[in-house]
Amino acid sequence: MDLLALTDFNLVARHGGFGRAARESGRPKATLSRRVADLESGLDLRLFERGARTLKLTEEGRALHERTSVLLTELEETTAAIASGGAAPRGRLRVSAPLLFSQAAMGKLAGRFALKYRDVRLEVTTEDRTVDMVEEGYDLVIRVNPDPDARLIGRIFLRDRLLVVASPDLKRPAGLAPVPAVLRGGTGDTPPAWNVTRASRTRRIAVKPVLRLSSLFMVRDAVRAGVGAAQLPLSLVSGDLAAGTLLNWGDVEGPEIALWALYPSRRLLNSRVSAFLGVLKETFPMGSPEELASFID
């Protein structure tokens, strides 16, 4: 099999079209088209469905892309490592991270990484949706409590927990009286109560939504203003709790908040990914919410 043709096929598959692949790589569009056509002819398979304005992988093309893109990356990295004699990581590193972590810590973290690895071009995309690492060309994704995925491996690098917090001016509810609540998100279903544990005792706090906001930073600011109580991660309110500007009403019952760094399961780990994982470990050696709170202050 022609490795150059296979490389060009993966380039087109990753970018979703000949034109975009040509622009991103600086390769002539006609050359990419010819090499893909030669590969299809040699395999006697149609790898793309070509529409008037769209280009879509066939089932066979998708399978070939998924199984060969990682191998080609490993081959490229191995060749580069041998040629450089094990020099520092270099090249592009694409990372996807969730909104809250990006707003709170990723700028500072990315700056720290960039200063340490100047030959790596780090690109960070902020989004909460589940991305397809192979199809979208990501080297590493950071996610909160991700669903299991057999194609990915990873590690937890931070843990956090949810608290119900409120301004000292807001009195804790007595009996079944609902508390004014600031919620994150749209007009979806609202839980009738929060189960909160404090001093080994669990109680239900009835809630009455008074404000809905799309960002937890916005929720925190509204709680600081005394609008109502809210569920917020410890790392985001640790300073307020220490200063007494917010009070902790207790831990929210439920699974822990775990931040995972995920990457494709492969025999040879991308050296740039290894470097990024190393910076995460150096920055958060214990993986505690207090470390994150200290980092973002």
Rank of each mutant, 00 (worst) to 15 (best):
E135N: 02
D132E: 15
R14L: 15
P255V: 01
T73V: 03
D149Q: 06
D149N: 13
S215E: 06
D119S: 14
G42Q: 09
V237S: 06
G19M: 03
S215G: 04
G278L: 08
G254E: 09
R184F: 01
A229M: 11
S102R: 00
L213A: 07
L268E: 12
A30H: 11
H15S: 13
A275R: 10
L109D: 09
V120W: 09
S294R: 15
P168L: 09
L216G: 00
T7R: 15
R272A: 14
G85L: 01
K56V: 15
L232V: 02
D132L: 03
H65N: 07
R143M: 06
L75A: 15
R159H: 08
A229L: 07
Y138I: 15
E291W: 10
E123M: 04
V223K: 00
E60S: 12
T79A: 11
S41E: 14
R62V: 06
R67D: 15
I296R: 11
F101E: 02
A193F: 15
A22L: 07
S25L: 12
P180Y: 02
T125W: 03
S294H: 13
M133K: 01
V179M: 15
T31L: 07
V164Q: 07
R46T: 15
R67G: 08
S41P: 04
L268P: 00
T68S: 15
L241H: 06
L100Q: 05
P209M: 05
A83F: 11
T125I: 12
S288D: 04
L234I: 03
T126I: 05
A242N: 04
E49R: 05
N145M: 05
S69L: 06
R267N: 09
K171C: 00
F9N: 11
A22W: 09
H15M: 14
A199N: 12
V196S: 03
F295D: 09
D169H: 03
Y117V: 09
P178L: 02
A206S: 13
W249H: 12
T283H: 15
L234H: 14
T245W: 07
I205H: 03
A114E: 10
A261S: 04
G185H: 06
E74L: 11
T31M: 09
A114S: 15
L268T: 05
R266K: 05
A63Y: 08
L72C: 01
L45Y: 06
A87F: 13
L247T: 13
D132P: 02
A87V: 09
R172Q: 14
V252G: 03
R212H: 09
V219P: 00
L162N: 13
L232E: 01
S25V: 11
R204F: 14
V144N: 07
L292P: 08
L183D: 01
S167T: 05
V164C: 02
L247Y: 02
K208I: 08
R23C: 10
L246N: 00
L247G: 02
V196Y: 08
L64Y: 03
L100H: 06
P168W: 10
G91R: 09
H65E: 14
G51D: 06
N145S: 01
S69C: 14
G188N: 05
